[in-house]
Amino acid sequence: MAAEPLVPDPLPPKLPDVLTGGLSVVFCGLNPGLSAVVSGHHFTNKSNRFWKAIHLAGFTAELIEPTNDRRILQYGCGLTVVVDRPTIRADEVSRQEFQASHGTLHRKIELFAPAYIAFLGKAAYSAISGRRDIAWGLQPERFAGAVAWVLPNPSGLNRAFRLDDLVQAYRELRLAAF
């Protein structure tokens, strides 16, 4: 009896970007959570504070539901991720994966040409820039022509930042970008 051929596992679905040309800010997550990929929408985990933080920081006039994530475009903002591979926790993504995704992200940001790119957490930007001493906020060099900014990750697993801390950090970006 002949052995059955091995069939590779199908690639996991990709979370679609929410992008268009000429945006003021593109928020760049580290990678999508499993729930986001399953739903097809960004920041769907109930513990994630992204939507609340950007609303309270003044980016949106309303609290956007994750299922309506494309509404963020109406406010001059967009969404993407550094690494497409979904995980339960962002710390499951290696520095090498962030580095390998650099070229794809760079081309995407050049194509859509936002004024700012806001990395949500230090890990990806550190790996991409090759710098370990990343400060929060405005970065000294641009990324693909966009002003680079680093914000705290809004994940509910990030207990180092309370919602008020997130709102303050995100508000600083809004004041600079708009």
Rank of each mutant, 00 (worst) to 15 (best):
2 A>I: 11
3 A>W: 05
7 V>S: 09
9 D>F: 12
10 P>L: 14
10 P>M: 10
10 P>E: 11
11 L>H: 12
12 P>W: 11
14 K>S: 10
14 K>T: 11
16 P>H: 06
16 P>W: 04
18 V>E: 09
18 V>Q: 06
18 V>D: 06
19 L>P: 04
19 L>E: 09
19 L>F: 10
19 L>V: 08
21 G>M: 03
22 G>M: 03
22 G>W: 05
23 L>K: 02
24 S>T: 11
24 S>A: 09
27 F>T: 04
28 C>T: 12
28 C>D: 01
30 L>V: 01
33 G>F: 00
33 G>S: 14
33 G>C: 00
33 G>T: 00
35 S>A: 13
35 S>M: 04
35 S>H: 09
38 V>S: 09
39 S>V: 03
39 S>E: 14
41 H>S: 06
41 H>I: 02
43 F>I: 05
45 N>M: 05
47 S>L: 10
49 R>K: 14
49 R>N: 10
49 R>T: 08
49 R>G: 08
50 F>P: 06
52 K>H: 01
53 A>N: 00
54 I>S: 06
54 I>V: 15
55 H>R: 13
55 H>Q: 12
56 L>Y: 10
57 A>G: 03
58 G>C: 09
60 T>Y: 07
60 T>R: 03
61 A>R: 13
61 A>F: 08
61 A>D: 13
62 E>W: 02
67 T>H: 10
68 N>E: 12
70 R>L: 01
71 R>L: 15
72 I>K: 04
72 I>P: 04
75 Y>K: 11
78 G>S: 10
78 G>Y: 02
79 L>I: 08
80 T>D: 12
85 R>V: 06
85 R>K: 15
88 I>P: 07
89 R>W: 15
89 R>C: 13
89 R>Y: 15
91 D>P: 01
91 D>T: 13
92 E>S: 12
93 V>L: 09
95 R>L: 11
95 R>C: 11
97 E>A: 14
97 E>K: 09
98 F>R: 08
98 F>C: 08
100 A>S: 15
100 A>P: 12
100 A>I: 00
100 A>V: 05
100 A>L: 12
101 S>F: 06
102 H>E: 14
106 H>S: 10
106 H>Q: 14
111 L>N: 13
113 A>N: 15
115 A>Y: 07
116 Y>H: 13
117 I>A: 00
117 I>L: 05
117 I>Y: 00
117 I>E: 01
118 A>K: 03
118 A>H: 07
119 F>H: 03
122 K>P: 07
122 K>R: 15
124 A>Y: 07
124 A>L: 01
126 S>A: 14
128 I>W: 05
128 I>M: 13
129 S>K: 02
132 R>F: 11
133 D>S: 13
135 A>M: 09
135 A>D: 12
135 A>T: 11
136 W>K: 04
137 G>A: 04
137 G>F: 08
139 Q>S: 00
140 P>N: 00
142 R>P: 02
142 R>A: 11
143 F>P: 00
144 A>L: 03
145 G>V: 01
145 G>E: 02
147 V>N: 03
152 P>F: 09
152 P>D: 07
153 N>G: 09
155 S>C: 01
155 S>I: 02
159 R>D: 12
163 L>Q: 01
164 D>P: 01
166 L>N: 07
167 V>D: 00
170 Y>P: 00
171 R>G: 02
172 E>L: 13
173 L>Y: 05
178 F>Y: 01
